[in-house]
């Protein structure tokens, strides 16, 4: 859902740039407290993985495709502040090097995916992983956090398109949210598979580290 140049008016892209700059500044401040030599390469590798996975569009109904967003993947593995930095970095590279997402829309794209997507994934995952027991419960929490992150990012994009008078909210809302409720299923399935793979190969130091990762950062 990378918004191109031309879809957002000046007031919308300036506001989203400001919001994203604030969120990024705060994430950098929080990440600074935890980033060490063991964690730094992990950010690079997860960012690289998300870039690669975003290239692989999967078909959904009606001649439409979707691809991984990765906000939930990065957030569940490395916490919300590192997650925000990872998704923002991927979006900046896609915009500058690959013409995917407009430069004027970069603030909006970061806000939708690296801020709204990450916060949604973090809140849903933190809540559900405490309630749902066992590895099945964990997988359900990962799936739902991933699904919701895509739907909420699409909702944020819809609001920006509407405030830009690009498309009326009532027209865009059912279409955008509807399609992304389907794409979110793909997001959820891929994220569950990748998180299980990544933990199986020992990328995360120990199973519970994932949970404490998030907790450390909220206290942090």
């Amino acid at each position: 859902m990378h918004i191109p140049d031309g879809f957002l008016d000046v007031k919308t892209w300036v506001s989203t740039y400001a919001l994203s700059a604030g969120a990024l500044g705060y994430s950098i401040k929080k990440s600074r407290e935890v980033l060490n030599d063991r964690l730094i390469p992990k950010l690079g590798i997860i960012a690289a993985f998300i870039f690669a996975a975003q290239m692989v569009n999967f078909p959904i109904a009606g001649g439409t495709s979707g691809h991984l967003l990765g906000a939930a993947l990065a957030t569940i593995l490395l916490g919300p502040f590192n997650g925000c930095l990872i998704i923002s970095t991927v979006l900046i590279i896609q915009c500058i090097a690959f013409q995917d997402g407009g430069l004027t829309a970069l603030g909006g794209n970061i806000f939708n995916m690296a801020v709204v997507g990450v916060i949604t994934a973090y809140l849903i995952y933190s809540l559900l992983s405490k309630i749902l027991p066992g590895s099945t419960g964990r997988n359900i929490a990962v799936f739902l956090a991933s699904w919701a992150s895509v739907v909420m990012a699409a909702f944020a994009a819809t609001v920006e398109l509407a405030t830009s008078n690009t498309v009326p909210f009532s027209v865009a809302f059912p279409a955008m949210v509807g399609i992304h409720m389907l794409i979110g299923i793909g997001e959820g399935l891929i994220t569950v598979v990748v998180i299980n793979f990544v933990e199986k190969v020992g990328f995360v130091d120990a199973g519970p580290a994932v949970k404490s990762n998030c907790e450390v950062k909220t206290n942090g």
């Binding site: 918004i3 569009n57 001649g63 439409t64 498309v167």
Partner: peptide, 12 residues
């Protein structure tokens, strides 16, 4: 990768 437009492109 699927060559179809993504969610936002489809809606646009």
């Amino acid at each position: 990768a699927s060559p179809h437009p993504d969610g936002l492109e489809r809606v646009a």
